[in-house]
Amino acid sequence: MPKAVRMADIAQKIGVSTVTVSKALADKDGVSDEIRAKIKETAQQMGYQQTSSTHKSRQGGTGNIGILVAARFVDAGSNSFYWELYEKVVSRLLGSDYYGILELLQEETEQGLVLPRVLQDNKIDGLVVIGQISDDYRRMLQEKMLVPTVFLDAYDSCGTGCSVISDGYYGMYAVTNYVLSMGHRDIHFVGTINATSSISDRYFGYCRAMTEHGIAVTPEMVLPDRDEHGDIRFSLPEKFPTAYVCNCDITAYKLIDQLKERGLSVPEDISIAGFDNYSVPYISAPDITTYAVDMAGMARACVDALLHQIHHKHTTAGMKIISGHLVVRSSVKNRSI
């Protein structure tokens, strides 16, 4: 049986984005008449079946997927990592002939346990929740379970529902082991441990590496990096370690800036390692050693798991862990030589 033609196949043949193909086939604005005609002609030649308006509607579906992100993670560009992750999810959805509808979860909505608008309006076939939300809000969503749901880059301690996360535990274990291999022993962790499940995982990975090298981790070796609203800010101690491992790259870059204000340079005076492999272009700093999170792999696993739930109603939920890899750069000084 021949493989079904996807929007992504049409986009690759013409040399445009999948978003452009989606808009053209749906007769939406943002595409020139010439490109629209070319896309439709190519789609017909390739035997593309427009399932979003026919097949899905016969099954009672909408062809839409809700994407819920807590506003505190994206307000004022505070964490563009999630914007990039969101874009990869949308791209994967479009390649599967679904549209993503973004809703920012406001603090009052979360605290009041109010359902997202995309669920209230019954306009979606499934829901992707990106990033950490409160336990009460997550429990409310899971108890109601109005549509199949996947939690991306977060999970709960009960392990209920379907989650896709990066390998924060072994990722930070690898980062810390690398810093240790460079001759450092006085290594501190930067991150508010209980702020998110991702930070907790990374902290425990750091602890494992330190413990295996006979180094006991004390509370003084942890530098919190964010307040109750999720805003990244911290107060530097009077005495510094030889190295810091940070729960994310944004924290690492902000730490480098504060160290500069103290007259310290990286890696000459203090070594820094991060996590995510997410560059911050507006900050001038050395390239940091980090752990590259496979965002494309996470988005792919998330969308595939969600669509499987949509088409197979009694699918057993579970957690998927997507591994990344260590990226060695110039921010960690070798103290062994």
Rank of each mutant, 00 (worst) to 15 (best):
M1F: 12
I101G: 01
H55L: 15
R58Y: 11
N194F: 10
G183L: 09
H184T: 11
G30K: 05
H311C: 01
H55R: 12
K56I: 09
K254D: 07
M46V: 02
C302R: 00
A305F: 00
F234A: 09
L104Y: 11
S57Y: 10
P267H: 07
D97F: 01
V217T: 12
T316N: 05
P116K: 10
A296V: 07
W83G: 15
Q132I: 07
D304K: 03
G131L: 08
R139G: 05
F240T: 03
S78Q: 14
E261C: 07
P2N: 09
S336D: 13
C162F: 13
V245L: 09
Y86D: 04
T18G: 01
T160Q: 12
D29I: 06
D75P: 00
L113M: 12
D136K: 14
G61E: 12
S22K: 01
A195K: 15
L105H: 09
V69K: 04
L152T: 03
D75C: 02
S91T: 14
L236D: 09
V150T: 05
G274D: 06
Y48Q: 04
G230K: 07
D276R: 06
M295F: 00
K40R: 13
D9R: 03
T20R: 06
K144L: 11
N277T: 03
Y48W: 07
T290Y: 09
V147F: 06
Q111W: 01
V303G: 01
P224N: 10
A70S: 15
R202W: 10
S32V: 01
S284N: 11
D153F: 01
M46S: 07
E107W: 04
G263L: 05
R262D: 02
G66R: 06
Y99D: 13
I288K: 05
